[in-house]
Simulated scan of single mutants.
Amino acid sequence: MNRIPLRVALVATFALLLSSCASLSPESRLRNGLVEAGLSPKMAGCMAKRMADRLSIGQLRELQSLASLRKSHKEKMSTSQLLHKVRALEDPEIFAVTSSAALKCAF
């Protein structure tokens, strides 16, 4: 029986993990980013569903920067805190889409 060297197996596993990350939809990435930013999974999922189709890829990338803001905090981020940080991005369309999604998902 042939055994695959450990190094080859590790490289293949790493490549599979990278390819699975690359195949995430913009909605999935946005949802994950909102959760990383500190929103509850339920709120993040609802908002991502409403936001993903209304924002450009460039705008979604701008929102990715917000995920790193929570890494220094242990507590959840409130929706109002998120909106405050989104407004700081100085893109009125991102703010309008995000605040609309937050409002609709809050009820």
Rank of each mutant, 00 (worst) to 15 (best):
S80W: 04
L82Q: 00
T98M: 10
L24E: 07
L103I: 03
G33V: 03
A52N: 03
S68L: 15
A9H: 12
L6V: 13
D53L: 12
S72R: 08
K42A: 10
Q59V: 00
A102N: 01
I4N: 09
S100T: 06
L89E: 06
A101M: 03
K42M: 08
S20K: 04
C105F: 04
S72C: 00
R70N: 14
R54H: 09
P26E: 13
A88I: 08
S72H: 01
L17Q: 08
P41G: 01
E27I: 02
P5E: 03
S25E: 06
L66A: 11
S68P: 14
M51T: 00
E90P: 07
K49P: 12
M1W: 09
L66Q: 08
L34I: 13
R87E: 09
G58W: 07
A88F: 10
F14D: 04
E27L: 00
S40N: 07
V8C: 01
L60T: 09
K104H: 02
L10I: 10
L69H: 13
D53M: 07
A106P: 08
K74S: 08
E90N: 15
S25V: 12
R50K: 14
T79D: 11
L24P: 06
K71I: 12
C46Q: 08
T79P: 13
V86S: 11
S20W: 06
A101N: 02
D91T: 12
M47E: 04
K49H: 12
T79A: 13
C46A: 02
L60M: 15
A101T: 00
P41Y: 01
L34S: 11
Q81A: 10
R3V: 10
F107A: 04
L16E: 10
R31K: 15
P92Y: 01
R54S: 12
L24I: 06
D91Q: 07
E62D: 04
S68Y: 15
P41V: 00
L63C: 03
M51E: 00
V35D: 03
V11G: 15
R87W: 06
E90L: 09
